[in-house]
Computed example of a mutant assay.
Amino acid sequence: MIKRLLSYLLPIKIHQKKSVYSKNLEVTWNNGYLVLDSENTNYSFGSLQRVLKKGLKYIGYERIQNFESILVLGVAGGSVIETLKKEVKFEGKITGVEIDAAVVELATKYFGLGKHDNVSIVIDDAFEFVLKTKEKYDLIIIDIFQDTTMPNFLFEDFFINRINFLLNVNGFILFNTMVLDYQDRRRNAIYKSKFDNNYSVRLYPKIEVHNELFTIKKLA
């Protein structure tokens, strides 16, 4: 409790470790909240949670409540799962995929990742998982970063087509991207152009300065 109160004055680091995929992972009290950060960006329960919460609001909490299954690619500390369970009041099935076992370990220890019913966490590469899964989903959340870098496969046709195949009609993709320069803006413009009239695509720029969100609805 003392550390939490002091964190309103300055951040207080309580755990730090390295992993195969992250140079540095830190659990920190910041303004009264526990957050998970990588070396250069927030991974969970800080600005990232605010970004994805806005995306869920764009889709609509009531609409999401009526979904049956959600896929989260990139779990990190589990903040979007927390939002789905506590704020959206989603009671359907959530499958979370996270490549970094060290992140899942921290999320379980410090952020209660394992406390929710109807949530399963898979330690796997997102690309490999979407190739293997036989499930279909009403909402697919893509939030995959290695620090400030986004893997190239997220923007490649094969992955995009596979995600579209896994999405139910009237379902949504919520895709969080980071835009730091002109090349990133161009990359996002090209990504947007890859969806035909069977999809309704909206882009929300400058969420928390460097984030751009896509919401993509499958119409047919």
Rank of each mutant, 00 (worst) to 15 (best):
M1V: 05
R4Q: 15
I12C: 00
H15R: 13
H15K: 15
K17Q: 15
K17L: 14
K18T: 13
Y21N: 15
Y21R: 06
L25A: 10
L25H: 14
E26Y: 15
T28I: 15
W29S: 13
N30C: 10
N31W: 08
G32E: 10
G32D: 09
L34Y: 06
V35G: 10
L36S: 08
E39T: 12
N40V: 00
T41G: 04
N42W: 06
N42K: 06
S44K: 02
F45A: 01
G46E: 01
S47N: 08
Q49H: 03
R50I: 07
R50Y: 09
R50Q: 11
L52G: 01
G55N: 03
I59Y: 02
I59D: 02
G60N: 06
E62R: 07
R63K: 14
R63V: 13
Q65Y: 04
Q65E: 11
Q65G: 01
N66S: 10
E68F: 01
L71C: 03
L71Q: 01
L71S: 03
L71A: 00
G74V: 00
A76Y: 06
G77L: 05
G77C: 06
G78S: 08
S79R: 04
V80Y: 04
I81A: 07
I81R: 05
I81Y: 04
E82N: 15
L84K: 10
K89C: 05
E91H: 11
I94P: 02
G96D: 00
V97T: 04
V97N: 02
I99Q: 02
D100V: 00
E105D: 15
L106T: 08
T108L: 03
K109L: 12
Y110T: 13
K115N: 14
H116R: 12
N118D: 14
V119S: 10
I121A: 08
D124M: 12
D124C: 12
D124S: 14
F127H: 12
F129I: 09
L131T: 11
T133W: 05
T133R: 05
K136N: 13
Y137C: 11
L139N: 08
I141P: 02
I142L: 15
I142S: 12
D143W: 02
I144C: 08
Q146F: 13
D147C: 07
T148D: 11
T148I: 14
T149G: 01
M150Y: 05
M150V: 11
M150R: 04
N152G: 07
F153H: 03
D157L: 11
F158E: 13
F158K: 13
F159G: 00
I160F: 06
N161W: 02
R162P: 00
L167E: 04
L167K: 04
N168H: 09
V169Y: 09
N170T: 08
N170K: 12
G171Y: 07
F172Y: 14
F172V: 04
F172W: 12
F172C: 01
F172T: 05
I173K: 09
M178K: 09
M178N: 09
L180C: 03
D181T: 01
D181M: 04
Y182E: 14
D184Y: 07
R187Q: 11
R187N: 12
N188M: 14
A189C: 03
K194S: 11
Y199V: 11
P205S: 10
V209F: 13
V209S: 13
V209Q: 11
H210Y: 13
H210G: 11
E212I: 11
L213H: 06
L213N: 05
F214D: 04
K217A: 06
L219I: 12
